[in-house]
Design a binder for these strands. Structure first.
Lengths: 236, 236
DNA sequence: CGCCTATTTGATAGCCGTCAACCGGAGTGG
DNA sequence: CCACTCCGGTTGACGGCTATCAAATAGGCG
């Protein structure tokens, strides 16, 4: 959240003073389980996580991805029943903060509540873009768009490696995020590679021609709301 | 928001005391335009509205639908650039409240901020369900699910007519909401009708077998978070 | 009555899913 | 050190769901 809202010294101190518990979790661990009451609110310190929902036929849809620095459950801060699950994509480290403490802090400190709101609104914006991505783009664009988004979000936090994007997802998971099958994801990645838009080395991905990639992915980072939002609301 | 959070007398009075301007708009009018700075925050009093985004190929995706009582732009209350457009689906009546007044109120009254947060979180939950709907369900289920969602949301506000669901969307718009073409929407509606799940009279739709409809639509209203959320956060 | 939009229907094409097989690397145990 | 196993990636053949194209019908509104 620090990336988007300018917090004052006192607010930062209040956040840092919250009781929290740091834990390591293995890939695949559940952080939030659909249908249960939300517990502590975890913040992702290291590793990747994702939100998922299941259809009645058993198929999975990944509805969002999370990178280090993301809060993993502000979604349910004010709701009483989790409407989706959150799972670790890789080995992760999270700091869990009791929901009640966060709620009290949000009530007591409007600037903090504002920061939470901005974080939630940005995530909602990403969700809307995903609806567009899955609903109106073909397979190649969808995958390209997903890659662009992850790269842009990681770049914002200086988390790209020297090689580029180190994507810890299987092709099946990419399929679950884009509404495709792993087989077709494989073919499209191949195509993107053959056409020169990406270079692959294992799961590392580099973009030799970022502008071209952006174009064929129909990727415009506006919806990520990168850069700080004005603190007008905070100072009002 | 009143549907989900219990507001105190003073908070309600503060909301009612906000400066606002009531306007009528024709179907198709823009309420928010993507790429521009958000202006006043409108609340939908009568009629239907939708959010949309465009892909580079010109195809449209409707990312959410709104019924009377919905706030139409809490999304951008704390963001500086609209990431999508909001348009009137029918002739509508909106009450526009200046963004600054709402922000100040949210800063001054934590319970109001809480109500905004709940509203936003529920809408985000609906967005996630839409990602699942468009990504992992086939055409018949998608359309059935959309119909169920709208019916459930209208029912919560006692807005169903004696006939049932009075849906003011063209089949093309249903397609834009589900990632399908109008031609295929037509075929699937026909199928749903032939199989006895819906009855149609113009754009009015009735469900002779709601439980069956729910089942074939894979619709479970959990994600709508109907009923009031506890006000624990408000009283904390 | 005439225009325009929305709905309906049929024929055809294509994207992507399904099924199946094979490859390849990492980890494990002998 | 090597064989085995397992998971993920790769490839090909085939089928089905949905898009596309086209045209006819129906409905709303002047």
């Amino acid at each position: 959240m620090d990336n988007h809202v300018v917090l004052g010294v006192e607010d930062k101190a209040a956040l840092a003073a919250l009781p929290h518990e740091v834990r390591d979790l293995n890939a695949g661990s559940y952080i939030v389980r659909e249908g249960t009451a939300p517990g502590a609110c975890p913040v992702l310190l290291e590793g990747f996580a994702y939100r998922q929902k299941l259809a009645s036929n058993g198929e999975r849809q990944i509805v969002s991805l999370h990178i280090p620095g993301d809060a993993l459950d502000l979604q349910h801060l004010f709701l009483d029943c989790a409407d989706h699950s959150v799972q670790a994509l890789t080995k992760i480290t999270v700091a869990s903060i009791p929901r009640s403490a966060l709620r009290q802090l949000a009530m007591a400190r409007p600037v903090i509540a504002h920061a939470f709101a901005v974080s939630n609104q940005i995530e909602a914006s990403i969700n809307r873009e995903w609806v567009l991505n899955v609903g109106r783009r073909d397979a190649k664009m969808r995958i390209a768009h997903l890659l662009c988004e992850i790269a842009a979000r990681l770049a914002e936090r200086d988390l790209l490696t020297v090689y580029g994007l180190e994507l810890p997802m299987t092709q099946e998971q990419i399929g679950d995020a884009t509404g495709l099958t792993s087989v077709h994801v494989n073919r499209m990645l191949k195509t993107l590679e053959l056409e020169g838009w990406i270079e692959r080395d294992g799961r590392a991905i580099r973009f030799p021609n970022w502008e071209g990639m952006r174009r064929i992915a129909d990727f415009s980072p506006l919806y990520l709301h990168l850069g700080r939002q004005t603190a007008a609301g905070a100072s009002a």
